[in-house]
Design a protein around this nucleic acid. Sequence first.
DNA 1: GTAATAGTGTCTTTCAGACAGTATGAC
DNA 2: GTCATACTGTCTGAAAGACACTATTAC
Lengths: 338, 338
Amino acid sequence: MPDAQASPIHKPVSTTIEINLTGVILAMQGDHPVIYAAARDAQSSPGLPSGPFDPLRHRTLELGLRNFAAEQAKLTLGYVEQLYTFGDRGRHAAERALAEEGSLVPHVVSIGYLALTRVEAGAAARAQFPGLYSFFPWEDWRKGPPKLIDQSIRPLLDIWAADHAAEAASADRRALSRRERVALLFGGDNRPFDEEKVLERYELLYEAGLVDEALRDGREAAKAWPERPALGRSMQADHRRILATALGRIRAKLKYRPVIFEIMPPTFTLTDLQHKVEGISGHHLHKQNFRRLVESGGLVEATGEQTNTGGRPAALFRFRREVLTERPAPGLRLGRSG
Amino acid sequence: MPDAQASPIHKPVSTTIEINLTGVILAMQGDHPVIYAAARDAQSSPGLPSGPFDPLRHRTLELGLRNFAAEQAKLTLGYVEQLYTFGDRGRHAAERALAEEGSLVPHVVSIGYLALTRVEAGAAARAQFPGLYSFFPWEDWRKGPPKLIDQSIRPLLDIWAADHAAEAASADRRALSRRERVALLFGGDNRPFDEEKVLERYELLYEAGLVDEALRDGREAAKAWPERPALGRSMQADHRRILATALGRIRAKLKYRPVIFEIMPPTFTLTDLQHKVEGISGHHLHKQNFRRLVESGGLVEATGEQTNTGGRPAALFRFRREVLTERPAPGLRLGRSG
DNA sequence: GTAATAGTGTCTTTCAGACAGTATGAC
DNA sequence: GTCATACTGTCTGAAAGACACTATTAC
């Protein structure tokens, strides 16, 4: 790596760079979170809407993303937020090989975005909106701890951690051992499962060679697991990693910003609201506490109308925009269980 | 990246794109936060360490940034985190003019980073480490509400908000009015000052034409304030915006991650810890509550040693690494005042 | 009535915020 | 002693978390 010591003059960059914009478009179908993802054909993995940023076509990065969403998913996005910029070399294995031989294949840096939208459950569109948890089955704790974790993930990760137990003892004290990381991220032993650490869990599984990232460099892929189970569906390129980032982000954000209402219809029942929040945060909530939080927190107000859907009619509510000006961080300071 | 049906083929991007990496390197000098920023000469505004990402030289984006920090600030960074990717067209006004005539001047997208480091207060280096609050004097509430806000900022923003009072009433109900935004971001009238909203405040001031962003497009610059006061020092390019992002991020992160210890020496007194946290978060803390939080939260442990610096000797503490594995979000759940 | 869904009342534990005090050193 | 800094004990009120109970509809 040539060091131009403190000189502010840099040689022109010798490979072309391409900026890829990729969007996670999240919606709810009933109580289940879904994302827009299309597969080229029945064989290939689904991919998120994406495309190259072109400063001549797109006035800003975000407008570029909105443009791709409109073209590919046929959706006009409302809420959009930038997540993270992924730039690891080897993002596309094929490109990498070429690039290292000095060709001019562009290096790709991708910027991930999260968009929230309301989608009418058109039956035709359903195939294009797979369930979010089909990609991360270990993240759905609404029916209690997923069996997948106890039956597959933890046993395999224990083997993976045992491999390094010896080194860990002598190693750098600043870094956590593999065993500690597994315990921290997947809970168990009275340790809580922190639903926000979606990306960290995904990266641990990737590091252990238990999930595939299509076309990524095969650093760890050689570590063969003869009886490796299918841990969720994979996606094109690094889209599954971007999706993990999105899920972690929105789970965190629910707690201090009223983003959930971007996904709710204009009026809704509190039970519906609770179920959708549970769908995203991935665990059950205590009903009474949820209602208290949401009502006494001034997040919603009754419309006066009611639904009738089988049992006792439910009161309809709407989002109270005024909270935005009343409280610094209006969110659903959600606790656990219920 | 060719895609399924919707918009399969994208034309090759016709302008070259350059990715700029820019780092905010934050340290403490005593109780005061400082950043690395160098000016070319006495006349020009200071700038953060930065440079173009070159995939042939830098294995990852972050390594590229570390490289520029080493070259320009002569610092080997420890903790580094990505902040945000800024891509507005017109990031460099001069470039923009050329690019719109179809020339091949690159469009610049910049990725901001935050790094935390310990710096020995070498007197020689001091000039290169200006105080953080010299760029955002309205963010330092340690001595109470800054007079600048009451004497300059709020009166000017009130004028700016009054300009739009009429439109606001009729306008889109989803958007907050100027008056509401001012009240929300700068507090007053029994509204709290939310110290995390650093970027939002900066952007409001920028929108109102009260702060300069060197070389940015002059959309709002025409709005002349005849008696405009100096609201903090400006920086090169969009560096001040990146700095605002960094300050907002670390103020938020302090509360749920033990990042402060990246800046602390290996052992420290609780008073010193409190003062440094106050320096970053920008307001005073209640002493007893702070100590209770930090000790009962298991964030620190006594070393058994003591200092003697004038008064009663203070017990020395060190960071307890074990919290990382004990609690999901170990931070200083700081309250207000003191 | 029974099943199904909606909604409430209140207790306990935890913890943030604030009070006012005591302890140990240099001089 | 006085000044300066370090440290502690305890009250209060707001919520988070959990308990069990009542209400209104369709059939």
